[in-house]
Design a protein around this nucleic acid. Sequence first.
DNA 1: TTTCTATTTAGGGGTTTCCCGAAATATGAT
DNA 2: ATCATATTTCGGGAAACCCCTAAATAGAAA
Lengths: 96, 96
Amino acid sequence: MTDVFKALAHPVRRQVLRDLRDGPCAAGELAERFPVSKPTMSGHFNILKDAGLILAERHGTTIRYRLNVSVADEAIGWLMELVAKDQPKPGEGETE
Amino acid sequence: MTDVFKALAHPVRRQVLRDLRDGPCAAGELAERFPVSKPTMSGHFNILKDAGLILAERHGTTIRYRLNVSVADEAIGWLMELVAKDQPKPGEGETE
DNA sequence: TTTCTATTTAGGGGTTTCCCGAAATATGAT
DNA sequence: ATCATATTTCGGGAAACCCCTAAATAGAAA
C-alpha cells in the first residue's frame, strides 16, 4: 500500500496511468509525451511497475506497458474502508 | 492530489486516519499510540492537515483532529476514473 | 505571575526522491 | 560482425523526507 500511494504521488506518474487507460503503449512513445528525459521516465516506469500499477512485456525491441487495474482497485478498497459509514472495524485491513 | 497521495504514502499517517474513523481525537492521545516521538507525530499531523485529510480545532489546551472525508472521496474519485470501464475521456479530470 | 500540561518549532543527521547527461545493454536488421 | 533503435543503468547533485532531542509557544489554573 505504501508503494502504491507513493507511486501515485507524482503528477507525471499519474498522467502515465491515465494515458494507459487507452490501451498499452511502448515506453518510448509514452516517454515522448512528457517534458522530462527518458532516463527519468524509465525511473517513473519502474516505480509504477514495482508498485504493481503497470505491467511490462517485451515486443521485439520495444517494451509495452499496460495498466494493472487490480492494484488500483486495492487502493480504492483501502480508501473506501476509510470513508465507509458502517465501520468494518475488527481484524480487517492493512494487510501489508 | 499529489499532496493527498503523498500524505497517504506513510504507514503511520494511514493508521492515524484509520484511528480517526472512530471519531475526533486529541493530538497527544493519538500520538501516544505510535512508536515515534511527539514532534515527529506533529509533523505527520501537519502533512495530513495540509493535504486536507484531517481538520484541527482547539479545545482549550488540546487540539482535536478529525477525519475530513471529502478529500478522501476525491482520491477515490480519481482512482475510480482510472479503472472505469466507460472512459470519461475528454476534458475531465486532474483539476489540480 | 508562576506553574503545569499540550503541542509545536528549531536544528541537525541520515536516507530517499527527482532530475540530468553519458554510457551500457538488448534486440533486430543488414 | 556491424549498425541502428529502444530502453535501461550509472554517477552525481539538489531538494525533500523522516526521525530525533532540546527549546519554545499556547492555554488554563493557582
